[in-house]
Every structure is written in structure tokens, then in C-alpha cells.
Design a protein around this nucleic acid. Structure first.
Length: 419
RNA sequence: GUGGGUGUAGCUCAGUUGGUUAGAGUGCCUGGUUGUGGCCCAGGAGGUCGAGGGUUCAAAUCCCUUCACUCACCCCA
């Protein structure tokens, strides 16, 4: 039979790698708890309209990357390409703002975008999302970023660059947009082919272009920071001030823009050298108009998404099994011994001792080899003769010491192993 | 969607200007040695050389097509 493979861009995370994911997730959850951020679990499938309205109809994500299909019943559904819009949808749908005007939420899970896969980019990828709703104070921006940097540090990642910018608001952005486009149009012929196209589709994106000649032609171009209104300016300055107070290092990147339309004011990105071209580990920002845009009250928000897969890729590999915890291998020789070992194995597991045994009746040598491979801390060798006396030899794999133990007394056995 | 690179054993890879039964290391299995595992020794299993077509007496090797993986562009986390 021909074999069936996974779908392009969708990958398996094998048992050797999952401990890494679990460790990070555990750490992150505990930090979220300390910062008063509570988990919300949301569906993977949403109505297409949610993303069209939330992310923006003209964005690449909505235009060409979403997994959208017509469901039975003539309704367009989409595998979520990002989480913020979904969290806001749930926030509005359940009137969470009625119970408490302030909400700090996190969610972890897979997202789907049909891009061409490459290093650090998959069609199913995982994000850790945090959203702070109902607070407009610049301190909340600083708090969020400080927490984020702390979290990444705790997980074991250094050498990160936090870049921030302000994108202005509905009041100041249109004026900037117009002058910027005017400036770029005048120099259209000097821009690279991609940027010429962007001029039509997403002109602000040109400021992000990595092409050197483009960077040269746009020096002296108007910058959003010179156009933002007094309120946005004051907000941005306070954010920087508070970041300083919290001792969070950052640089202002006056050219940074975001790919989703809902961002306003504070925008930030965390990059690293070690990930190849896909160097953004985290992106985020303020979205003060989104809740209203999705049919809720005028409530401000700010959040970020960590690329979980990219985060994991930055961490050193660990061995698949841990040898720290007690782990007994029962090597049984002979039918009766096997019989007893099977039952003993079960009892040990129920007594919260990790236990393994071999069921194929292999030689003692192979059994020991397997015990070693599994990283067992102890081996218990039972033969039919030992069975009559209800004792067996327990060997500590680390220091080589051995002792005779009662194999009928599971609790005593547990004590010997966990000592 | 556009380009480059790579597809040979479970894994990492050799394979000369086309030339007999396709190789190594590692892992797996069996046995020996060892104080009952690690080290060492011997043996064994495992490959439609990504797939399809073509050139040739002869193709893993050359040509075409296709698929997959990968890196980069684009975009983003």
C-alpha cells in the first residue's frame, strides 16, 4: 500500500521534542499566573467574517493565506490565522467586560496560514497569545512588554532585541499616510519591483523593505512619529519612560509597521539573530479600536503573540527522557517470574512509580540493554527461583549498589526506589 | 505565487570519467566476552537509489517531466 504522508507545512512534534514544549509551557503558565493573566480556550474554527473585519480585508493574511471553506449550510468558515480577533470575539460574546472592566487573558494553540513553508514558518504553527483589555494607560503597555521580556529570559533565551514604534491612531494616521504615499510616488522608479507593487497594496510596508537601495531612497521620507497627534505622542513617550523605569532595554524603530490592520499606537517586535530569515519571535501592539470594530463597546486593548515553534527552535536540544525521576525496569526470567513482574509493574505504576518491563521474553542481556536505553534508575531482576522466596535483587543503575528487596511489598519497594 | 539547493538502509551520509550481486557509520536483532547493562568481538535483518518517462549493450550516475523536502523572496509570529 502506498503510504500517506502529512500535509505540506503541517508537521508532527515527536516524543523526543515534546518535553521541551511542555517545559516551556509550564514555565510560561506559572509566569502568567504571577502576572494575573488567566487562560481562555477558544475554537480553532471561526466565521470568516471575523478575520475579514478584524485583520483587514486587504492584508496578505486575509487575501491569500487563510484556510477558508464553505461549510454545509452555505456558511464560510476559516481556520484561525491568528488569535487576537478570536479572543476579542469571545470577550464580546460572553460580555466579559460586564463582569470586570479589566481582563488579562492568554491562550495557547495552533494557527493556520497557507504560506510557503521555510525555516521557522509552517502552515500550522503555534502561538502563545496575551491580551490585556480595558486599560489605556501607558503603564499597561510597559507592563506587558516587561512581562514578555522577563518571560523570554526565564525560558532561557537571551540576545533579544525589543523594537518599538508608535503607529498613531485613526485621527493622525490618515494625514501621515497621504504624505507618505505622495513622497513614495515621487520616487517610484527608484524602488524595487516589490516596493512598486506595495505602493498599491500596502504602501507603509515599504519602510520595512530589506533592499538596501530602497532604504536609501526612502531616507528622508516622512515618518509616522513626526505625524502622530499630541495624545499619541504623549502616550508613546510615557511608554518609553515606564519601560525605562522597569529597566526594559529597547530601541525605537521608526520604520516598523505591522501586517494586521487593527494595530494602533504602540507596536513592538522582538527579533533574534539565530532564526534565519524568520527572525521575529514575538510581535504585538495596541489595538484600541478592535473591540468596537467587532461589535463590542469602545474598549482598548494591547497584546502580543509569541511564535511558539520559533521559541522552541531557539532552545538547545535536550535528551528525550529524563533520568532524574525514579524509574524501575523489571527484568523477569521465566514464565512465573514474567507473570509476577507483569502484576508488580502494574502495582508500582499505580503507586506512582514509573515502571517498565519487557514482554517479549528476551535474554537478560537485551533486557538490561533496554533498561539502560530507557534511562531507568533501578533494575529489579526476578527469576523463578527468587519468586519462591518473594525477594529479588534491586540494582541502582547510577552507583551500581544492589540489595535484596521484598517484591510482595509494593510500598516498601517504592520507598527503596525513591530514597 | 517566484527562485536556488537536496532526494541512496530507521537515522547521518559515501558511491570515481555511466560498467558485475549498491556501501560505510550509527541504530535494530542474535551470539560471544564482561561480575547482570555501558566497552570490545562476531554474525544477521533491513534499499523498487523519491516517482514516471527517455538515451544506452549497460543508468543511483546523463536528459526530460513530476513530486517531496529545504533555504530564500514575499508575508509574518
Amino acid at each position: 500500500m502506498a503510504k500517506i504522508t502529512s500535509v505540506r507545512g503541517f508537521r508532527d512534534i515527536l516524543p523526543e521534542e515534546t518535553p521541551k514544549w511542555q517545559r516551556v509551557e509550564e514555565k510560561i503558565r506559572s509566569i502568567f499566573y504571577d502576572f494575573g493573566i488567566r487562560e481562555i480556550r477558544i475554537p480553532v474554527l471561526e466565521k470568516t467574517e471575523l478575520f475579514k473585519r478584524g485583520i483587514g480585508e486587504a492584508t496578505d493574511i486575509v487575501e491569500k493565506e487563510m484556510y477558508t471553506f464553505l461549510d454545509r449550510g452555505n456558511e464560510y468558515l476559516t481556520m484561525r490565522p491568528e488569535a487576537t480577533a478570536c479572543v476579542i470575539r469571545a470577550y464580546i460574546e460572553h460580555h466579559l467586560y460586564e463582569k470586570d472592566p479589566i481582563a488579562k487573558l492568554f491562550t495557547i494553540g495552533p494557527m493556520f496560514r497557507r504560506e510557503r513553508p521555510q525555516k521557522g514558518r509552517f502552515r500550522q504553527f503555534h502561538q502563545i497569545n496575551v491580551e490585556f483589555l480595558g486599560q489605556e494607560d501607558p503603564r499597561i503597555d510597559a507592563e506587558l512588554m516587561a512581562m514578555l521580556m522577563h518571560l523570554l529570559g526565564e525560558v532561557g533565551i537571551g540576545n533579544l532585541k525589543l523594537e518599538i514604534n508608535s503607529l498613531g491612531c485613526d485621527i493622525c494616521r490618515p494625514a501621515f499616510r497621504e504624505t507618505a504615499i505622495g513622497f513614495l510616488k515621487e520616487r517610484e522608479d527608484k524602488l524595487c519591483a516589490d516596493c512598486q507593487r506595495r505602493l498599491e497594496t500596502n504602501p507603509l510596508r515599504i519602510f520595512d523593505c530589506k533592499n538596501e537601495s530602497c532604504q536609501e531612497t526612502i531616507t528622508g521620507a516622512p515618518l509616522i512619529l513626526d505625524f502622530i497627534c499630541d495624545e499619541c505622542r504623549s502616550h508613546f513617550e510615557k511608554v518609553m519612560e515606564y519601560l525605562g523605569l522597569l529597566q526594559v532595554p529597547f530601541v525605537v524603530n521608526r520604520r516598523m509597521v505591522r501586517g494586521l490592520d487593527y494595530y494602533t499606537r504602540t507596536a513592538f517586535e522582538i527579533t533574534t539573530e539565530s532564526l534565519g530569515a524568520q527572525n521575529a519571535v514575538t510581535g504585538g501592539g495596541r489595538y484600541d479600536g478592535l473591540v468596537e470594530m467587532l461589535g463590542g463597546p469602545a474598549i482598548s486593548g494591547i497584546g502580543f503573540a509569541i511564535g511558539f515553534d520559533r521559541l522552541i527552535a531557539m532552545l538547545p536540544d535536550t535528551d528525550g527522557h529524563d533520568t532524574k525521576h525514579p524509574h524501575v525496569f523489571i527484568a523477569a526470567l521465566g514464565n512465573e517470574a514474567q507473570r509476577h513482574a507483569f502484576s508488580l509493574c502494574n502495582s508500582l505504576r499505580q503507586a506512582a512509580v514509573r515502571a517498565e518491563m519487557d514482554l517479549s521474553g528476551k535474554s537478560l542481556k537485551s533486557q538490561m540493554k533496554r533498561a539502560n536505553k530507557l534511562g531507568c534508575t533501578h533494575t529489579l531482576i526476578i527469576g523463578d527461583a527468587e519468586l519462591a522466596e518473594a525477594t529479588a535483587q534491586l540494582r541502582n543503575m547510577q552507583d551500581g549498589t544492589q540489595e535484596t528487596v521484598d517484591i510482595k511489598d509494593v510500598q516498601a519497594l517504592k520507598q527503596r526506589v525513591t530514597a
